[in-house]
Design a protein around this nucleic acid. Structure first.
Lengths: 231, 231
DNA sequence: TAAAAATCGATAAAAATTTATTGCTTTAAA
DNA sequence: TTTAAAGCAATAAATTTTTATCGATTTTTA
């Protein structure tokens, strides 16, 4: 590691293990499922079983939220849900805008789940004249030129980027200039943001790489076993 | 960890570190960028710098593919691209079907990048009469009833699931029955698949959880600093 | 042609994450 | 009322992943 590399800006104060954070929504969904089924308490053993994990991991993950469980019984589901939601800040609505009203943008606007996560997408922006003035899933689409004004007037915190990679940095700069504090990036490029803005990039290809590797392993394994049979 | 937990089916022969696998598409994109710029060689130092990583990590990741670099020079870009692609099996097309021709399904069908990753989505399936018979981004949409026949006749390997969570397991079972060997799941539920089928789930909420945590940390940090100023 | 600089490859160390262990507490059953 | 079982909490161990170090190799410069 050379001197320059040591100064790379990586995470905004890490705090909690990222793998644990990523499992929280999993727990949340399962807990809400229990709620619908009328169950009131859940143990780590039960949760782990239903999610294909192991109990200690669940226990450790949940302990991030400060919840206290009772031996032989488990956690109170309602309380646990509240704890997780407030831990993630999902108990209060955070206003967002989305730039890039294409297919992917539309899919995100259409995903009702995010509302439950405190994400309130107030408006979409695009440069396509055919889209400007319309609504996508009851979210108005405005001209990108109006982004800055809108963000300022409506105190928007989060910006979602669903534009082609060629313009992703441009859009980012506009968002930062307008006062956006957090960027959820669906384009595959690494965005440059100042240190007072946080950014999280969704890499759909990463997930496909993992699947591809599994497929390769599976096929290789089968070839090997096939050969063994021949011998 | 109890006895039951020890038998949980987790990964299909792990093999390579998942974080490393997930970074490969990142390298690939950057390398293709170099190609477009007419560059022929790249060192880990350079790649790391451009991606915000450190050189040793890049070197270790790339070593998975068996590439050999030259000191003081780096790797031949064309060769490295080939290595990564063949390592992931992206050098040959793998046929896929997609079930759930909604907004998210449409977005995936529309993402040209996957074609470069050897993913050839041959057909989409849905239960909506209005969609059946149409084409989404030049991909025909058929009735879900025809899934099994289509998969068998066309030797489809990969199934992509973009249906509501309530029917995700149902669709999975259909896919498995039809002979699908790998499932790329965009629904938030854990799918039950037999051990000869691999599965990878994309959790968009996970990414949002990480962003949310960063936002919380950022705001907390600012409050703290604000208080310090007052004192 | 020798010395210096860059960087690879391999190995070692450190850090992060997962899993195991232990003791204590609560509930339920004998 | 005692005993057994389940499960939380905390701590320790193991594993995985990241980062550092070192010697060797190639290129460039003096």
């Amino acid at each position: 590691m050379n001197k320059a590399e040591k100064n790379v800006h990586r995470d905004y104060k890490k705090g909690y293990p990222s793998p644990s954070l990523q499992r929280l929504p999993l727990y949340l969904r399962q807990l809400k499922q229990y709620q619908r089924e009328g169950v009131e308490k859940a143990s780590c053993t039960r949760i782990a079983q239903d999610l294909g994990l192991i109990s200690v991991q669940v226990r450790k993950d949940l302990s991030m939220t400060g919840i206290a469980g009772r031996p032989k019984v488990g956690y109170n589901i309602d309380e646990l849900i509240n704890r997780i939601e407030s831990f993630l800040g999902w108990d209060k609505q955070r206003k967002a805008v989305l730039v890039g009203a294409g297919a992917l943008g539309g899919a995100i606007l259409g995903y009702a789940g995010f509302v439950e996560h405190g994400l309130s997408i107030c408006a979409a922006f695009d440069v396509d004249e055919n889209k400007i003035g319309t609504s996508i899933r009851s979210c108005p689409v405005y001209s990108l030129d109006e982004l800055e004004k809108f963000v300022e007037q409506n105190q928007i915190v989060i910006g979602i980027i669903t534009v082609p990679q060629s313009v992703a940095q441009l859009v980012t700069d506009k968002m930062v200039k307008a006062g956006i504090r957090a960027i959820w990036n669906y384009s595959p490029v690494r965005l440059n943001v100042p240190s007072n803005v946080v950014c999280e990039t969704v890499q759909l290809s990463s997930s496909f790489a993992v699947l591809s590797s599994k497929v390769k392993n599976m096929l290789a394994e089968e070839r090997k076993n096939g050969e063994q049979l021949k011998e």
